[in-house]
Design a binder for these strands. Sequence first.
RNA 1: GGCCCGGUAGUUCAGUUGGUUAGAAUGCCAGCCUGUCACGCUGGAGGUCAGGGGUUCGAGCCCCCUCCGGGUCGCCA
Length: 596
Amino acid sequence: MGELLQGWKRTSYCAEPMLSDVGREVILMGWAGVRRDLGALIFVDLRDRTGVMQVVFDAGKLDEDTFKKAESIRSEYVLAVRGTLVGRAPEMLNPKIPTGEIEVHVCEFKILSKSQTPPIYIDDSANVSEQLRLKYRYLDLRRPAMQRNLIMRHKIAHCARNYFGENGFLEIETPILTKSTPEGARDYLVPSRVHPGKFYALPQSPQQFKQMLMLSGFDRYMQIARCFRDEDLRADRQPDFTQIDLEMSFVEVDDVIAVNEGFLKRVLKETLDIDIKLPLRRIPYREAMDRYGSDKPDTRFGLELKNLSDIVKDCDFKVFAAAIEGGGSVRCLCVPDGVSLFARREIDALGDFVKVYRAKGLAWFSLKPEGIQSPISKFLTEEQIAAILERAQAKTGDLIFFVADPDDSIVCTALGALRLELGRRLSLIDQDRYDLLWITDFPLLEWSEEEKRFTAMHHPFTSPKDEDLEYLESDPARVRAKAYDIVLNGNEIGGGSIRIHSSELQETMFRVLGFSKEDAWNRFGFLMEAFKYGAPPHGGLAYGLDRLAMLICGATSIRDVIAFPKIQTAACPLTNAPDEVDEKQLKELHIKIDLE
RNA sequence: GGCCCGGUAGUUCAGUUGGUUAGAAUGCCAGCCUGUCACGCUGGAGGUCAGGGGUUCGAGCCCCCUCCGGGUCGCCA
């Protein structure tokens, strides 16, 4: 057993003392990092969440027992040391750490707790597999980089509470055990013991509750809300994640955007000391798809897409003609000086790359000094080729890639993905830039081939744009929504909309979505009924706190800014969740397992 | 559900055309060392080559299956 504190009180964190504190007696507590044992002189890097302080055990100044105890110190022992802060001689300075000008000469110390040899190094330079890191997450979180990330995440959450609080937002909690909603992602279900055969669902977002808070007159609401979606994981997707969620009454799109631009400016200033210029750029959805092939474009580099449909609609290349005939498009991407950058084999590999995005192939023009080399130029007239080169603003040495498909969204997303891939490979992306923009005017609905009906692109409570309202039932595909996403460096970090606040319009919306009146009332009746009692115009936005923190920390996965994340199978290697439960628990819940 | 990549000392990795006793670095243990900070020096321990099956005189290496991890498409209102 370790020694007891017995009245010892920490006087400061490890990295707090400065050169001006030299001469003071301090008591520090923390974990033993690297130990350098020179025989009669032992150096230990004592570490806590603020950093490290070198503590010195000198055989000439300590009694025999104390020094013997110092010799037994190993990695990750928990120590309390009492000693004097000493300035280091010029030849003993360590410029690599903030406390490198000082050290503590120990006169007395306690081993509060011993440690087995840790299975992973507590060091940022260590490159340990994520599997092992997550199994021993409590050790992984001792690494300075992880401590920095979680501290940064705290700063973001703290900034959100301060900013929205100062702007009249009230923080109000909404239930975790709630009702399953049919639209959207799969729900996590929780069986009810007192209602045999019935289930709660964990919220995918506090959407309906925050709308009802608007109805109750709270006017401005915010919450740092846990949300749950039972879908497959990604580097930027966890089943259990956090939103900075907010909603406002008596507002239109510009009002929501304005208050959030204030927040974004402040959070980037407080975390990264970056000044952003307001107002932010706004790009309509259609323009984003046309120019970047994405509704979350990375605008830190050019390489924009061009639509060639009008030029090639009557050409002799069947793939192009058929794509346009079928209602799709032909678009291209011009890579400056691409001829020298990509060998034929690499171009073929890029063809495989776009197939992942359901494109059927990748055509190309290689603009060599001796002329155009291309498998498809023989199907095009000189006029068509000239028009393509002009549209693509191509010059000798450039490489043009084409995608054609009867489904325009496939053309856009495949070329958009290719654009990003080329941007990365050719190092066109300025890693130091923070490029924020709004994407606006999303389609309200999208056609689901699988379900043979329109589904809400955002969610079924999103308001149509006033000028498109008349087409809601006659031509649903053409209706644009009062919806907006906030995009940072090609990542969607938040999204929101002005909501429907009329129960009649909400009923129409459910009808367009193919719900019978009965279905709609069964599932969302509580909300529609609420709207009959005086609903203010309202709208809001939710940020993905994890993604925002990831980008601000410079991490490549949201797992690195979540203390205890789950792996790709939605399991937790630390706790071994999910796990089987006792027969008794199942019985109380009236649940029988049927594994087939 | 599909596609791609990976699994070898505690850890990170190397391992040639299938061929002797599977290596390195680091960590760990022991000894020496009073100014180190990636301390140094000497010595030592440490392996179910993810698991199973197959081909072969012989498999870490080739084939099949399974498991595990990562990325991604689908999916994520």
